[in-house]
Design a protein around this nucleic acid. Structure first.
Lengths: 337, 337
DNA sequence: CTGAAAGCGCTTACAG
DNA sequence: CTGAAAGCGCTTACAG
């Protein structure tokens, strides 16, 4: 059986309190005693029991992460950012991934039980009252790629600016009839991107008719179907902006299978810069999101908020609540460049 | 502050033992009492503290997963399989991802502390003695995409059969001069695939000279460099088998950038069937691995092994130790079909 | 069917 | 600098 703190104490000839102090190096311990304890730890291959430690200290040293259960490299990058930040701070990572759409939010139970000291929620369907309920237990929460307002910190990509830059770029090519393939509303991304597009068009005295805005769901094949719909229009669009790369790639495929060329007949651009986008032909012009950074910052912020319960609110308000991380234009071939 | 079991007990007018019994429904409790307790739980929004429960019961209800820190959809799919299986069994998932190559194995500490009831290790650099050390603590371990022998269960893709099928397919096209772009040795995959290839060639009275076997590392760009090397050969290969799709795609790029055509001048095939492979032109012929299933089975097996410590070995031996999951040929265009 | 109590393995004031 | 002891919030034999 695994050694306990009692075994170590006996082996080193000290009390368990001293062993604990050495291991957590909080109080002063004499060098000689410390050495003896450390030696005993080594010899017995002692590892403090995480439950006992958590129960006694009321800290888990664990960061919780809730992320949509979507097979998307996008989310994978966020996880890496969160994990690196957590590791950097000496925290473990407990991950729960959430089916989408979620009718029950049982995953939150995980975090209501004192399992985690703080948590990061990524692009997940949550209700404000649930978040506040957890925050009220003293567990700081930070959102990534999602915002619910109140005093919950959020790290988002600057979708609006990114989409503006893309739209300006398309107009720079001389395109006037643009179309948009929308994503779902599970995060406000798609709407923000559309809004930016419409704003830029309006600034140039242009607009996009409703028949050129078709729904999609961000997932495989939905861009294909949406593009087929656009190809029915009496007047074809000159350029199609898809709310993410996956749909943009599918749209390109639909165009090509219908005997038209990208970008000569119809230009196509996306959003996200997934790895595949540089491999297809023509390579996809898109917007790169700071995905890894989003996870990293969100985790760092969440961990920074850990502390005495009384101060949660105060600490929350010390920094700007919403951080918009820059999204940058990646110009390749599919736009006509 | 969060309600404890004492609050619930007082509120329901029973002892904490009874509350515990209701919540874990182990022993008989009268329906009336049960109802009163449940009502109190609801009213106080009680959630049992995970640490206290873990400490008292000596179970965490958590499955640990260690996975390489590689940005690869391949591993992402394994995580999903593991997670689905864990959720299915009512287990939480604690994930640690391991930089590769790993000189320290500190992530194992996480699991030496009683944090998890069982663990799954995916394609990770581990030493047998470390695994046995953990197993000796009564924590069952299952490997995925890796095998270290002894009595540690392992779930692997059937690399040998998959590679055989691919090689036969290439020979069926009439190709006789094959080349191989190898992966790293961090898992035995690459060697197994090469071995199968050589076996099939030998069975047909053929062989592959050492100058047609070039090293790669599975990662971005390594296929490109390897292919440039192959293009230096006085006699070019007719078909190139890369140990994974990523390298195969890079190899295709190298060929095309040198003014040759795939598959007319040189055929290229890969292994893994990553999403990108169906998007490139020509679409890549490859071998699909049962990645999700590997994770799913490994997790199910690990959880099944949880139980009284005395029986770990016995339970381990009850089922076949190594499970080879089928890898199937996906024929597209890059092979010449 | 239910309660009282020991025990899980730590941390952390409190004394000295 | 170090020890003795309370306490963290549960589970689970043991009685009754």
């Amino acid at each position: 059986m695994a050694a306990t703190i009692f075994d170590v104490a006996k082996h080193a000839g000290v009390s368990i309190g001293t062993v604990s102090r050495v291991l957590n190096n909080k109080d002063r311990v004499s060098p000689a005693t410390r050495e003896r304890v450390l030696k005993a730890v080594r010899e017995l291959d002692y590892h403090a029991n995480a439950f006992a430690r958590g129960l006694a200290s009321q800290e888990s040293n664990t960061l919780g992460l809730v992320i949509p259960q979507v097979n998307d490299p996008f989310f994978f990058q966020i996880v890496r950012g969160v994990e690196d930040a957590a590791t950097d701070e000496g925290y473990s990572l407990l991950i729960a991934s959430q089916p989408r759409p979620a009718h029950e939010h049982r995953y939150l139970d995980l975090f209501r039980r004192g399992n985690v000291d703080a948590m990061v929620l990524v692009a997940i369907d949550v209700y404000l009252h649930e978040i506040q309920q957890i925050a009220a237990r003293g567990v700081p929460i930070v959102l990534a790629q999602q915002d619910v307002g109140k005093n919950i910190p959020a790290f988002l990509a600057d979708n609006y600016s990114g989409s503006r830059a893309m739209t300006e770029h398309l107009l720079g090519h001389g395109y006037r009839r643009l179309a948009y393939i929308a994503g779902t509303n599970y995060t406000p991304d798609s709407r923000e991107r559309l809004r930016a597009m419409q704003d830029v068009l309006a600034e140039h005295g242009l607009s996009m008719g409703p028949e050129y805005i078709v729904p999609g769901d961000y997932l495989q094949d939905s861009g294909y179907r949406a593009m087929l719909e656009l190809l029915q229009r009496p007047v074809l669009p000159e350029a199609v902006f898809a709310a993410n790369d996956q749909m943009a790639l599918d749209a390109m495929r639909a165009i090509q299978e219908n005997g038209l060329r990208v970008p000569e007949d119809i230009a196509v651009v996306g959003f996200d810069d997934i790895p595949m986008s540089s491999y297809v032909s023509p390579a996809l012009t898109t917007i790169q999101q700071p995905v890894y950074e989003m996870g990293w910052h969100a985790a760092k912020r969440a961990i920074a908020m850990i502390g005495p319960e009384e101060n949660v609110e105060e600490r929350t308000l010390a920094s700007p609540r919403v951080m918009l991380l820059p999204a940058s234009l990646v110009v390749r071939k599919s736009c006509g460049c």
